[in-house]
């Protein structure tokens, strides 16, 4: 393993996975996991707004993405009870509008022709470009000066992970109860309920924006849903879901690396890491339920 090249990819993927798992565990029990897929498309206007305001791919782009995804999540929540069609129609109605506005903004700002916002890059990710981290051995991770050379995507992903984890731990008792009992929040004061809702929205927006920035739409969608679905098969409580899901994500990352090396050795071609990771997490999620049944730990599927 070449530390300066592989550690940034591993740390970015792992922190993105933890952030996505936290957000996915809030969406899956409510039947809204497809918000993760929709948000990854709806984010486009936020990326463009952030880029237009700052002129580079810095923190403003991440902030723009967080704001637009938060607006999207709030909009979906508001519309859910205001139409008489089937489930998920509000998500399907809103995200194409956001994406359409993004495409029009891309055209109006002239960024379409400059290639500064590359739709391919946003969609498919570019984990392989996460270079370079001045790391010679593992002990260097404890030296603050080394972190100044960290790739911005990795820093953003780690910061989002830390913030998301802090928010979830802070509001754990409320989140846990509201997931188990949908009417729990009606017993709270409107201010208390609103604060928890804002925290949840922030965690979801942060996770979607950080995952997209670090690893692209493909990895974002896979990491939001599949590890949580796998964790669900074994866990009994919310924190157990998180731990199982993180373990599944770590296993998938290790298998991704192994598959990538094997493909390079056998075929002479290195498939995209984000694609292999998506396939592994989906495969592990699909295998989790039968395995849990074999181990007599099965519980109702999400």
């Amino acid at each position: 393993m070449l530390l300066s090249q592989d550690v940034p990819i591993l740390l970015t993927l792992l922190s993105a996975a933890v952030t996505a798992i936290l957000a996915g565990s809030l969406l899956l029990p409510r039947g809204q996991i497809m918000i993760s897929e929709a948000a990854s498309h709806a984010v486009l206007p936020g990326l463009i707004l952030g880029f237009v305001l700052s002129g580079d791919h810095g923190w403003e782009v991440l902030l723009g993405a967080v704001l637009v995804i938060a607006l999207f999540v709030v909009g979906v929540g508001w519309l859910r009870t205001r139409h008489s069609f089937g489930a998920g129609v509000e998500i399907a109605a809103l995200f194409p509008i956001f994406f359409g506005v993004g495409i029009i903004a891309l055209s109006l700002t002239g960024l379409e022709d400059t290639g500064m916002i590359d739709v391919d890059h946003i969609l498919f990710g570019s984990l392989e470009l996460l270079l370079w981290f001045e790391l010679v051995d593992w002990q260097d991770l404890l030296r603050p000066v080394v972190w100044t050379s960290a790739p911005p995507q990795m820093t953003a992903s780690l910061a989002s992970c830390f913030l998301g984890l802090s928010l979830c731990l802070l509001a754990y008792p409320f989140i846990n109860r509201s997931l188990m009992d949908q009417r729990f929040m009606t017993l709270k004061t409107p201010v208390g309920a609103a604060v928890v809702k804002v925290l949840e929205t922030l965690v979801i927006a942060l996770a979607a924006a950080a995952c997209l920035r670090a690893a692209g739409v493909v990895v974002a969608i896979a990491l939001f849903s599949a590890p949580v679905i796998a964790g669900w098969a074994f866990a009994r409580t919310l924190w157990q879901v998180w731990l199982w899901a993180i373990a599944v994500a770590m296993l998938a990352i290790i298998l991704t690396y192994a598959t990538s090396l094997a493909a390079l050795a056998v075929l002479g071609v290195e498939p995209r890491l984000s694609g292999i990771l998506a396939l592994w997490v989906v495969a592990l999620a699909t295998l989790a339920a039968p395995l849990a049944r074999q181990l007599k730990r099965a519980r109702p599927l999400p």
Partner: peptide, 12 residues
């Protein structure tokens, strides 16, 4: 969600 993850993964 699983299907779209699978579709994207296979594509990439």
């Amino acid at each position: 969600a699983l299907a779209i993850g699978l579709a994207y993964g296979v594509t990439l």
